[in-house]
Amino acid sequence: MLLIECPWCGGRDETEFGYGGQAHVPYPEDPHALTDAQWAEYVFIRDNPRGPYAERWVHSAGCRRWFNAVRDTGTNDVKATYPIGARKPVTS
């Protein structure tokens, strides 16, 4: 079970959270300008690294706010959590 540090509520069990996949994937500025391949990339393709991964979580059973985390997918170690809109922190 993961222990996740909500930026507002502190460390809580994973069961209080929902998962939102990769973070920092902006909606295309001009969707109409995208080719089919670029649209497919935006809709269907996300990074899938073995290692640090910036991802979104929502504290559903707590403050109900979204935030970002950097978690190592090779160890499940949560390296950092930070508010939406903040830059991805540098983690070791």
Partner: peptide, 13 residues
């Protein structure tokens, strides 16, 4: 399990 992982283990819940 909802999250991405390569650890070959999941959560008890």
């Amino acid at each position: 399990d909802a999250y991405n992982s390569y650890t070959q283990r999941g959560s008890i819940p």
